[in-house]
């Protein structure tokens, strides 16, 4: 079994590209924006698109991603059976 942290080893031989850093930052910003928008209650993707300044496909991708990561859960479907709403997941 290892005893020391190996991250220090790789830090000496690898650098993180600007692109990777930017991608991480972008995800963080989108995550914060979407979670904040859901604080006031469940919303469908078109409703989110009206509220936040992000392209609708970016919202869909990231809502589904946040769902997978356990930050968001699926709510009800609307009366015309078209759009589900998504809501913040209550963390235990």
């Amino acid at each position: 079994m290892k005893t020391s942290k190996t991250i220090d080893h790789i830090k000496k031989i690898r650098t993180v590209s600007e692109e990777v850093k930017a991608k991480r930052k972008e995800f963080n910003t989108i995550k914060r924006t979407l979670l904040k928008a859901l604080e006031s209650g469940p919303k469908s993707i078109p409703q989110l698109a009206e509220e936040v300044e992000l392209p609708i496909d970016v919202i869909t991708f990231n809502i589904m991603t946040l769902r997978k990561y356990g930050d968001v859960e699926t709510g009800e479907i609307d009366d015309s059976d078209e759009y589900f709403s998504y809501q913040l997941k209550q963390k235990k």
């Binding site: 469908s44 993707i45 078109p46 698109a49 609708i56 496909d57 869909t60 991708f61 809502i63 589904m64 769902r67 997978k68 699926t74 479907i77 059976d81 078209e82 759009y83 589900f84």
Partner: peptide
């Protein structure tokens, strides 16, 4: 599956 149902990747519409 990646989504909660079969949905459109653009806007999440069924």
């Amino acid at each position: 599956r990646p989504f909660n149902a079969v949905l459109r990747p653009k806007d999440g519409k069924m």
